[in-house]
């Protein structure tokens, strides 16, 4: 399978990437690791007119301590997250989850920015970004803006990033104490049928769901039940409240709701809530 023809331009800097995006118009796409985009292009489910390759922007590959947050460059690859000392100290859930994405070959190419920008509710890292109250730093011709994760995911494969904009940084809260990531799938390298991220940044634990709707979701009913003093087992009962999972070859919507309740309970228990 070979993608449909496209124009290709390699950006040497963030500014150049943004001007290339404006120049090539709406049908151009950013190419990071290519491990979501190229499979779609090979199946001709995506036929961008041009690819703006940002894969070599070393300036966007980093994990830094930014005071009460950690700042992660959008082009940081899953493998680099997995072995980051900074994340091991301040948000180990991110390294752990990066290590569950696909397989080693996928992790050598795929980036956190690509995972988040792709907007696939079945992806692992977006739920972690949501649980850690992420801030997405987006740059475009008009300058830089910061979008909270709660307003970033608009729908299935739709995010707040405009066609001429680049996601440059992801800022996450540091975690405190126990956390958990529960990924349920049938085969080792598969995407999550359902996934659950539990982390504490301050106060009550944050709980986020993978593949329980068109976007990653916060399990708001679980969080408020916990805040009101419910036990983990009681709170987990409301895990699927407000979620709208789909039925597909992996699982029915009803099975997904069941998984969400079970995985949230396990996650809360593992996190020591």
């Amino acid at each position: 399978m070979i993608p449909a023809a496209f124009e290709y331009a390699r950006a040497g800097s963030v500014d150049e990437a943004i001007s290339l995006l404006s120049e090539h118009g709406e049908d151009a796409k950013v190419l990071a690791g290519g491990h979501s985009l190229l499979p779609l292009m090979k199946l001709r489910l995506a036929t961008p007119s041009a690819l703006i390759d940002v894969g070599r922007l070393q300036e966007l590959s980093y994990v830094r301590d930014a005071g009460d947050r950690i700042a992660i460059g959008a082009l940081t690859r899953h493998r680099d997250l997995q072995v980051s000392d900074e994340l091991a100290r301040s948000a180990p859930i991110v390294s752990h989850v990066a290590g569950l994405v696909g397989d080693p070959q996928v992790r050598h190419r795929g980036t956190i920015g690509g995972s988040v920008a792709h907007g696939d509710p079945a992806s692992d890292l977006p739920a972690v970004v949501l649980a850690l109250d992420g801030e997405l730093v987006i740059r475009g011709p008009a300058g830089e803006r910061v979008v909270p994760a709660s307003e970033f995911f608009h729908g299935f494969l739709e995010t707040a990033i405009g066609p001429d904009e680049l996601l440059v940084e992801i800022r996450l809260r540091k975690t405190q104490g126990g956390w958990s990531y529960q990924k349920f799938n049938r085969r080792a390298q598969d995407w999550a049928t359902v996934g659950v991220a539990v982390a504490r940044t301050d106060g009550t634990p944050a709980v986020a769901l993978v593949n329980m709707g068109a976007t990653p979701l916060r399990a708001a009913a679980v969080e408020s039940a916990l805040a009101a003093g419910a036990s983990p087992a009681e709170a987990a009962e409301s895990a699927a409240e407000g979620a709208d999972p789909s039925s597909d070859i992996q699982a029915s919507a009803e099975f997904r709701r069941h998984l969400a309740r079970v995985l949230v309970r396990r996650g809360l228990e593992e996190a020591g809530v």
């Binding site: 290709y8 190419l31 290519g34």
Partner: peptide, 17 residues
């Protein structure tokens, strides 16, 4: 590719420049 395993059916030749 630069010492790390990758699936070459999912990399463009231009990315390996």
């Amino acid at each position: 590719m630069d010492g790390e395993s990758v699936k070459s059916c999912t990399v463009l030749a231009v990315q390996a420049d």
